[in-house]
Structures are given as C-alpha cells and as structure tokens.
Design a protein around this nucleic acid. Structure first.
Lengths: 210, 210, 210, 210
DNA sequence: AATGAATGAGACTTCATTCAT
DNA sequence: AATGAATGAAGTCTCATTCAT
C-alpha cells in the first residue's frame, strides 16, 4: 500500500502494537472512499481484520478514529519533508525546485492527497483537526516557501514581488492537481511530472530577474 | 389511523412560485455547512420555511435535492462567464487578465465556492454530478484558458511553453483560494484581490517573451 | 368493468350522483388488488378520475370509504339472491341445486369474491363490517340453506342428518373456490361449473334416502 | 453524534439460541392480529422481548420476517401430516376419515389457520410465498386426497365420480371453518368436531356404493 | 363542488456504541 | 485483550388528511 511498513499485520498478531496501525490503515481507506458519515465502523473493522468492539478499545469514538487517521498520516510526512529541506544545498532555484517538486510528490502523488480531500470535505465538522492541519502542514509549508523566495530575492536571483506574502500561489496548482486526481482522473488522466515541469517553468521565469 | 393532524397553519396554499428555489437556497446552505450526510432534510425544510413533506413534492430524494442544488448554481454561472468572455476586446494580456480575474471572482469569491467544496467532498458518491461538473465547468473553463494562451503565442505576445496543455496551472491558485476561504479564513484571512494581482504578475511575467 | 352500469362516469359529469359510485368502483379495484393499508387514496382518486380532495367530500376517511365499498356491493347482491329463491318452485332437490349453484355463481364467480377476500383479510380491523357481513350475507344465506334441507327431510326426500345445524358444509367448497380463484388460479385454473356439478353430486347422494 | 446510549439493560448477551424462534412466534401473533401492513416491527420486538434492531439482525426486512413466519409454521406441519398418512392401515373409509379429520385438526384447529388467513390476506403481495404454499401445502394435500379416493374406487368401496379431479370439494368445508373461527366465532361458536362428523357423514354416504 | 399543494405524524431501517462472556 | 450480539436514537421517506382558492 504505502512504504510505511507495519510489521505486525497478519492474523497471528506477532506484534501487538501493529493492531492500532492496522485499524488506522483500514480507516483511511474507508474514510477516503466514503467520507466520514458514509464510512461504517463495521467495514473498517472487517478491513482491518478485527471485530467492531476492538476498534473501541483503541479509539473512543468514530470521531476520534477519524482524527487518529489524519494525525497518523500527517505527522511523519511533515517530518520527512522538513528533514529533506533542511539538508539542501545549491542555488535558490534548485532549492525551490526541490521544494515544489516535493509538494507535488507528497500532496498530489501519495496517499496524503486522500487526507487533503478529507480535510476539505470534513473540515467544517472537525475544527480541531483543521487547526492542527493548518499549523502543522499548511503554515509550515508556506513558511518554508516564503523563506526560500525571500532568500532568492536577497541573493539577487529573484525579482522583488508580493509573492512571499502569497506563497499559496505556488502551492495552488499542486493542491488542485491532488483534487483532480481524485475527482477527474477517470475523465482526463493527469501527468503530474509534466504538470510540475510546466508549472515550474512559468513560475521560475516569472520570478527571475529579466 | 394516521396523521390525525391539527387544524394547523396554511394548508393547501396555491403553489407559491418561488417554492422550489427557496428549497434549493436552503439546501445549499445546509449542505455547505454540514455536508451531504450530516445535513438534515428537516433542517432544510425549516430553513426554507416549508414542511418536510413539501421537499419531497419537489425532489424525489435527498440525493436528487443535492443534485438540484449543484445544477441550480452551476448553470447560470457558466452561462454568465461565457457571455463575458465572448464580448472581450483588446490585447491578449488584457483578455487573460479578465479571464483569470473572473475565475477568482466566481470560483473563490462567490457562493459558488461552496459548490466547489461540495463537489470535492461528495463527488465520489455522485459520479453523474462529477461528470456534469467536469464537462460544464472544468472542461469549458480550461478550454477557454488554453485558447487564450495559444492566441497569445500565435500573436507573438507569449513564449511557446507547454502551458496550453496544462491550463490547470493557471486555475490552481484560484481553486486553492476557494478552499482556503472555507477552511482557513478564520486562521488567516485571505485577500483575494491581492492574491490575484500577485498570481497574475508572476504568470504574465513567466509567459511573456523576454 | 362489471354489469352494474354507472351512467355518469365521464369528464363532463352528466350525472352528479354517479360520482360517488365511480369512487366506490375505483376503490374496490384498489382495495382488492392491494389490501386496505397498501391501497393509496391517491390511486383510488386517479382511477376514479377525480382529485384526492374530492374523495373526502364523499367519505370521511379511508376507513369509511372501505366500509362504503363493502356495503355498496353486498346489499344489491343479497337482495337479488333472496328474490330469486323466493320465487322458486319444484322439487327440493331442484331448489337446493339452484341455491348452491347461485352461491357458486355469486360468491366465487363474480366480483363479490373480492369482497369476500377483503372481509377475510381486513375483517379483524373492521368488526362493524364483520357484524354487518355476518348478518347480511352469512347468516341469511345459511338460514336459507338450513330451511331448504329441513324441508327436504320433512318431505321425505332427504335423510335426517345433522346437516341443518352445519349448513357451512354446503357453503364451504364455494367459499374455498372463491379464494382459490384469487390465489391459485395462475397455478391451476379452476372450472367452477364442473366443480359445482361434482360437489352437488356427492352432496345430493349423501343426502337422499337410500 | 449518534446514539449516546444509556448504560441500559442487558447488552451483548451471547446469542440466546431460541432468539429467532421467539421473534417468529411474536411475529405470527402480530401479523395474525393486524395483518402485514398494520403490524409494527416495534410491536413484534416488544412482544418477543428484544429490541427493534435485533429483529434486523435475524431478518433483512419486514417482508423477509413475514416469509419467515409462514415457512416456520408450514414446514413442520406438512412433514407431520405426511408422516401420519404414510403409516395408516385399514379400510379406505377409515383412511379418508383420518385424512379429513387431520385436515380439520391442522387447518382449522391449530395455529396454522392464522397462516391460512395470512396467505389469503397478503398472498397477492407475496407471490413467492403463494407458490411455496401452493406446492407445499395445497398441492400435496389435494394429491393425497385424490389418491385415497381413487383407491376407494379401485377397491370397489366408492362410486366412480369426478371427485378425484375436484378434491377441493373435500377440503372446502375445513378451509371455510378455519376462516369462520377467525372472523365469526364471536358471533356463533363453531364446534369443529361436530362439523367434521356431519361433513364426513354426507361425504361418505355420497361416495359409497348404494 | 372541486382541486391539489401542503402538512406532519409515524413507519421502517441503519449503525455507533456497549458489555457479558 | 477481544468478540459480536444487542441496543435504541435518529434519519429518510410516505401518505392520510386539510383547506385556500
């Protein structure tokens, strides 16, 4: 499914702590496919290979389970992302290229786009989660972008524009691509790499000094 | 045996004409706030000032009501949009500026952004609606953008890039802004006009010949 | 549909008093097909060619309508039957033959068998109607049979048996044939005339003196 | 958000085994008294001493529950009946006496007469059940009667009549008696044994050779 | 007299949650 | 720790009945 291995998954439960992860995995699948309300705790249980009661041993309610799913997937991703960016070297153009590429990969290309859609769909009912998501993912991601752009300006590579105040501009196409993949990919398949290249070409040309 | 009824309010009123629109208005509000599942037909009725039964006089089911809402709001908007673009004159830069501005205004700035969010949230359960939305809104909007960019290239105003194949790049920030307005505006208010100006500045500079 | 003509049935309502009969006709059809609960007042109205409201001008409630249907069909039939028997002449065998044949014709062969089934099906909910039906149809019919048998015994044509106390024995096959026609005729078509002949053959042979 | 539940009664009891039979018992009572539509699943639950939800644990819908009731009562009865007849010895008169008596006992005298009435009342809505009932009860019962009569003729005990083609004649009074018990017993109590003796007296005298 | 849009009580059914085992 | 039968609140939808026109 994803690279994040969960060692103790099979019937014979070789590792107890895998149980909770199995449930979260199954829950992500169900919530992604059906949405919060339409997802059935029973189906999550069946998919996770446990009984319905067991889910309530690990999570107080369906709402807590949902929150668990979001947190479970966001935290490691953000950590990874920050890690990657911290160790980057080279030109600012290379840096921002790597950052935007990372956004496409993580946001639109991985399982995380399901989380994004769930946030859009169920956000109004989970304000705590929106807070968490905003602070952990959005704000941090945008801050990184802003700083990189400011660095480019400081180094004389980029024009001075209002972009540092609106880094959403840079994020937007990737977010939209994530949504597209979920809703419209059967109508018109989207090539994420090509989209990224096109987007970045316009962006960098619009940013660089003449 | 059934419904012994109280002498009650105003029965049998002779079909006030706006009835169906009142219901669709109320339904948009409820669906936007709560989502399809969590919205209660009862609450829609209360908000529309009619009884629960009346809603089923106009719509076969909650699902048809939802579809009615989406169609009700999309069709006139798309018609307006096409109208506006058809009568435009001036440079290609002016034209694309007007188009992108229109997208920000309509998609992110108006009530239609609720429809956009509903499509993202409930799309997987309403494939017919997704088809309709894709063909009526997305495809048509992207085609217009593509043609304008191609026109700019043909006239020698724009560089030849892959952008005509990925007009999603242009749409993306507006879509994301719409989502932001719904989810994060309480965390960080978004100035749509300023965002547009910043976005367009980068875009047009990235597009124009050196 | 049946011989009982209703002169004023068409749109132009040439005869006002036909309205109520139209409704009762339609109601019998609906109640027969669906049963009391499953029958819709709306459908009765549609079938009668009037609006739903009109039905409530003639009948206080769905229950009164049902009662109206039963009374409407029973009274004339019973009157006819008594008329016929009153004027009969000839041997007691001929008389009882005519009576039993009449029962087959009216009970199993005509529209009245639908009424019979409705009484069986809905009787427990309409005790008043059951009373009425018992006194008007059952009791009177059985009394006639009893007297005829007693007459046969008195005249020396029939053996002295307990049959006058159990005239239900004579009625039974006709009642069952009526039910059969409704439930099982598609499985195995029933020839009412042949059944009558067979039944009567056994009956008269069992009754007559050796 | 849903079912905040009270600490309540006895949850999660480990599948008392008679559960399904308890429900079918209660359902027969309710359906018999009220009919299919007027019977409330809630009342069945109350009578069975379970919650409404539990019924849906055992039966998919109210219709399946109804079918379950009919099948539950018919199958064992038919089996018993066939068993009894298979082991009979003696004259054909004794045999047919036992058979007809059995019909009175089972059809009119036991709980099965409620099933009979339900079939008459609700049959048109449950064609599958009518098929089942016809093949399992009616057809089999009539075939047995027919063979017995034919046997009597072959042995020279009975006259040659059309009766083997119309065994319904023999069944009819018992069926009608069953209906009478339900509808009219409060008006005029029916003595099943006496009725049987009277009926059989006429029948056997009508059948036997002079 | 006739209409039919509107009402709202009430039914079936679902499913999150509990708890005896 | 784990199960899954049982619960019952709550939702969608139906339809007998009403009444302004």
């Amino acid at each position: 499914m994803n690279a994040k291995a969960n060692p103790g998954k099979r019937r014979g439960r070789p590792a107890k702590e895998g149980r909770s992860d199995d449930i979260l995995d199954a829950a992500l699948d169900e919530f992604s496919t059906k949405g919060f309300d339409a997802a059935r705790v029973d189906d999550v249980a069946k998919r996770a290979g446990v009984s319905k009661g067991t889910i309530y041993l690990y999570f107080d309610s369906k709402e807590r389970l949902f929150e668990g799913v979001v947190r479970r997937w966001i935290l490691p991703t953000v950590a990874e992302a920050e890690d990657m960016l911290a160790h980057h070297e080279g030109s600012v153009e290379d840096l921002i290229r790597a950052q935007v590429h990372g956004i496409y990969r993580e946001l639109a290309g991985s399982r995380l786009r399901q989380i994004l859609r769930l946030m859009i769909a169920e956000g109004p009912r989970f304000p705590h989660l929106v807070d968490f998501y905003f602070e952990t993912v959005i704000q941090r991601g945008l801050k990184t972008l802003r700083r990189t752009i400011e660095l480019g300006v400081a180094r004389g590579e980029f024009r001075a524009t209002a972009l540092p105040d609106y880094p959403l501009t840079v994020l937007g196409p990737a977010v939209t691509a994530a949504v597209w993949k979920i809703l419209f990919d059967s109508h018109h398949k989207l090539d994420l790499e090509a989209l990224f290249e096109t987007h970045f070409d316009i962006l960098i040309n619009g940013l660089k000094k003449a």
